[in-house]
Amino acid sequence: MLDLVLPIECGGCGAPSTRWCAACAAELVVRPDEPHVITPRQDPGVPVLALGRYAGARRQAIVGLKEHGRTDLVPPLAGAVAAALGTLIAWGVVVPPVTVVPAPTRSLAARRRGGDPVTKIARMATAGVEGVAVEPVLTMRAFTRDSVGLSSAQRQRNVVGRVRQRAPVRGEAVVFDDVVTTGATAAEAVRVLQTSGTYVSAVLAIAHA
C-alpha cells in the first residue's frame, strides 16, 4: 500500500520496491585492480583514476543524486569511494595524512541541489577514517557556465581562471569529482592547489565519460 502512495524504485535500474538493488550494488563493487588510471583529454599532470565508465547503475545513481534529489544514493556511492581510497592508500598512491578536496561546483547548482553532492559523498566516504579529511576549499567564480553540452575546448575556456581557493590545504591532497569528462575541471583544480603550494597526489572520480 505504501509503495502505491509513495512508490520507490532502485536508483540504478528502476526496479520497484527497493532504493538500491543487489544487482546495482554489484556494479559498484571496487575490485582489487580498481580504480583504473584514465587519460582525459586535458592532462592535469597527476594520476587520474576512476572507478568505472559513466554508464549503467553508476551513471543513473549520479544523475539521480544530482538532478532528482535522491540523497538516499549517497551511501552506495560513498561506499565505493571509500573502498577506492583504501586501495589507493594500500598501493601507496595516497599517503595519509591526506585531504580530499571536492572539485568545485557552481554555487547556483549547489543551491538547486540542496548542497554539493560531491562533498556529501566525500564526507560520508571518509567518515571515521584516520588520517583522511575533507576540505571543500575550491569554488567556481560567478558566471561560470554549466559544462553540459560544451565541447572539449569550450569546457577548458569555461573553467580556466574561474576556480578559486578559499583556504589553504595542509599536507597532501586528492581532488575528488563525480565524473571526469575532458579533465578540464580537474586540471584547473590541480593547478590552483599547486599554485598555493599544495602537493596533489591524484585525482579520483566515481566515473569517467
Rank of each mutant, 00 (worst) to 15 (best):
I8W: 15
E9Y: 11
G11P: 00
P16G: 00
S17W: 15
R19L: 15
C24F: 08
L28W: 06
V29Q: 13
R31V: 07
V37Q: 13
V37R: 12
I38T: 07
P40W: 15
P40K: 08
R41H: 14
R41V: 09
P44V: 00
V46Q: 09
G52Y: 04
G52R: 05
Y54V: 09
A57N: 02
Q60P: 05
E67Y: 00
G69M: 10
R70C: 00
P76V: 09
G79F: 00
V81L: 14
V81W: 04
V81F: 15
L85Y: 13
T87W: 11
L88T: 11
I89P: 01
W91H: 12
V93E: 15
V94D: 05
V95T: 11
V95Y: 09
P97I: 05
P102G: 01
A103Y: 13
P104A: 13
R111T: 11
R113A: 12
D116M: 07
T119Y: 12
K120D: 15
T126L: 03
T126M: 06
G131M: 10
G131N: 04
E135P: 03
P136D: 09
M140N: 00
A142C: 12
A142M: 15
R145D: 12
V148Q: 06
R157W: 11
N158S: 01
R164G: 04
Q165T: 10
Q165W: 09
R166T: 10
A167S: 09
A167M: 13
G171F: 10
E172L: 11
E172G: 02
V175I: 13
V175C: 14
V179C: 12
V179N: 02
T185N: 07
R191F: 07
R191H: 02
Q194I: 04
S201Y: 12
A205S: 14
